[in-house]
Nucleic acid binder design. Sequence first.
RNA 1: GUCCCGGUAGCUCAGUCGGAUAGAGCAACGGCCUUCUAAGCCGUGGGUCGGGGGUUCGAAUCCCUCCCGGGGCGCCA
Length: 586
Amino acid sequence: MKQHLSQLLSSAVDSLQAQGILPQDAPVQINLDRTRDRRHGDFASNLAMVLCKLAGSKPRDLAERIVAALPASQHVRKVEIAGPGFINFFLAPLAYHSTVAQVLEQGEAYGRSNIGQGKSVQVEFVSANPTGPLHVGHGRGAAYGATVADLLDAVGFKVHREYYVNDAGRQMDILAASVYLRYLDLCGEQLTFPSNGYKGDYVWDIGASLHRKHGDALRHSAAEVFDGVPADEPAGGDKELHIDALIERTKQLLGPTHYREAFDLGLNSILDNIRRDLEEFGVRYDEWFSERSLTENGSVERAIERLKTSGHTYEKDGALWFRSTDYGDEKDRVIVRDNGQTTYFASDIAYHMNKLERGYHRVIDVWGADHHGYVPRVKAALAALGDDTDRLDVLLVQFAVLYRGGQKVQMSTRSGEFVTLRELRQEVGNDAARFFYVLRKCEQHMDFDLDLAKSESSDNPIYYIQYAHARIASVLRQLQEKGLQWDPAQGARHLDRLTESHEDALLVSLSRYPEVLETAALQHEPHLMAHFLRDVANELHTYYNAHQFLVEDAALRNARLNLVMATRQIIANGLKVLGVSAPDSM
RNA sequence: GUCCCGGUAGCUCAGUCGGAUAGAGCAACGGCCUUCUAAGCCGUGGGUCGGGGGUUCGAAUCCCUCCCGGGGCGCCA
């Protein structure tokens, strides 16, 4: 509908240009918005105010000329000029009746579009280190990333969902050493666990798996393991030096094969857990991309060579630096350490190079807001490689803070005292978790109220929306109990019987759905859909309370059923995009 | 210190590319169950859009500046 009106305006501008009232070469962008106030019609355009200078006339005068030049449309009831020069469109009932017909006819497909024209978009999200279970912070990235991906899919992009697995690097070595130490403990060795090790219970479980498989075969005495290892922090030493030395001892004592086994056992069991967790959360991926593969297939080396060749690197203090300051970063960054190891950043350059080489039209990274300082250097690297940095969008997701009983829930990853995504899902359910996570735009700090998410009342927006859907299903059941049938054809013929203000409000909302979907997708703002659904649910409940649907008058009854069934479809479609179920009863 | 995010009703937040009288939910207050689900609905009150300047037909929105809150600033990942 918006597109239709836009064309009318565009056509009017064309004829004014032909008449010489507007200059031929003027760039004309048609602005058309939903009005905030129904008294201003359905849509309003500020076109006359924008163009009045070019035309050399007063806004209202120009508006009159534009209105006079508008082609007739059966969807437009009247056009008014108001205020400083707004052109207000009032739609004919027919425009809304055709929306109901479209919703019922297209069903799940209603609202989907081809704005993306099949262009490929890669969305990388979550990508948490496989050193422990996902926590509630990752949950927000998961829900947000999955929904952005689904939204883009719904408007016609070809979406590739990807998880970057950090299966290399020091953190994973710390995990491997932690697993081995827990294994030794299970063998009966008395040892003090490093303060910087991973202390979660899951590490015990992995150590136990290692023990089940090998018995005491990999056992070394605690004295031997800690021989020559500098003191840990609580003992007055440095926790980093302590853990690094323990990693080295673990590698020496286990040898490459068994070390890799302990390492992979940790990696795989945690990754399996993460996969299952996300799967249960309704979050699916097309690809799990291994960081290690970038080193093994030479991509990291190749990326470094390309930077060297293009003259953006230099050596200092035995390390290789990337001169990211050339591209606006605040300082240069090390890509190869003085010990010859490449940094995480080097892998990330290779990974982003790889993404762009795969030919995606756009690449979206969903990161935690704590990585924001990282954006300039990654963009700098892509620029130095000669790539178009505009193809990369980095969406930063702020942290979520849980509240229970009005109190902040304390969390700390290293100590093992954190709320996992699984715990959250079990506590409030998948639907509430998915919904609450996308209720705020991503850059907004979020207070996640656990009590509210669990509550079975209208205070809880997800309950409220799902209940609207269930309520309509319930109406259909009542219809059957009365021995009646819904006759959509009769309903369609009598949509003009829908004259109540509640009906009008619902009709407008149904027609807004495609616009909301499009905006939410293109702006990467799922919260727009969440808020829209709440509005629709509110209109449905209000309507339900004010009017009986199952009236004697068959024509009116079926017209109303067409409307509420279309409403049910809209709610179902919107919830689906958000990864939330639409139950028929509650 | 610097960079990012935020500051809108008592609370949690919307507010599209600058647009008309700044909205919603909760909370508060007052109503509504002989009704397709009261798991709900209707109504009322509530605002220095953090402060101050600027840009213009028009600013919560854009620019400058200051204040407050949260976070980031490793040869960690």
